[in-house]
Design a protein around this nucleic acid. Sequence first.
DNA 1: CAAATTATGTCAACAAGGCTGACATATTTG
DNA 2: CAAATATGTCAGCCTTGTTGACATAATTTG
Lengths: 160, 160
Amino acid sequence: MPSDRARKIPDADTITGPMSDNDGIDFDIIEMLYFAYRDFTSDPDAILSESGFGRAHHRVVHFVNRQPGMTVADLLDTLKITKQSLARVLKQLIDSGYIHQVEGPNDRRQRRLYPTRKGRDLALELARPQSRRITKALRGIDPEGQKLIRQFLQGMVDPE
Amino acid sequence: MPSDRARKIPDADTITGPMSDNDGIDFDIIEMLYFAYRDFTSDPDAILSESGFGRAHHRVVHFVNRQPGMTVADLLDTLKITKQSLARVLKQLIDSGYIHQVEGPNDRRQRRLYPTRKGRDLALELARPQSRRITKALRGIDPEGQKLIRQFLQGMVDPE
DNA sequence: CAAATTATGTCAACAAGGCTGACATATTTG
DNA sequence: CAAATATGTCAGCCTTGTTGACATAATTTG
């Protein structure tokens, strides 16, 4: 049932020319970033959906494995989400044995986060296809070129 | 109320060593992609939230501006989402005058999508901060290097 | 031409993962 | 002791994805 609001002919306020890199805006890179990230996350997403976890769990597992012993506050700073959002997924990861909490050694209010063996294994399993994708994309690019790519990606991040 | 399940001392199943690039996995690039994309989308997100739109609207406005006259099916192929998801945001964009539908010239079932002036302006406004960010990240990288970056990003995308 | 296929729209329900606001508790700090 | 800090939790809301089912108009096919 195509909507009855479709016109037969473009009216005066219908733009027909494509937006292209002419305007000094690099639409190609903008789009490539979108597609690259979409596919980059698709591999772990597929693995996670089997365990009933999602992308949010992936991030938490990843960063806790990268920096075991980090506090909840560290994680909130890294992810830039609210503690209520974090609490939901963190609780599930703790309850299902992927992450342990340890009382802070100096400050007993803190909950230091550590992966379990199971948590480490999951993090590695999720990283593997992403690493494969990156390796493939870097194929044929020499170390200098790879350094430029890192520099570019780093330059895209807001300075802290 | 720190949970009563926090241990005082890491037990046997607590991994304390960080996951690092040793395992042949490039965790640095994995993380940089996450941070880069997060910040890359933050600029348009901030603009959109003022108009009551979200990231999904951004994508639709972007692609319709990139290829005016594309059909709904084209858009579904590009975004790889379901038509029900698309319908929600597309309807809002049409109702608020950012996008027009025109009956397909050969196939009258089709709804060709075109931006209005307002839609084009929005797409450009959203692209501008992203373009600025890219330009900044590319600063000091010569054309050959920029080509490698494009090659890398393209290589991250699944072949169609 | 009748039947099947295609392009699109729509209703309903559900899930993930963001958000805000408010409040509670334990611990540390001044 | 009072204030600040680290964390947890309840309740509700929003966006944006999902599935399944069904409807309509137009085109294509046998």
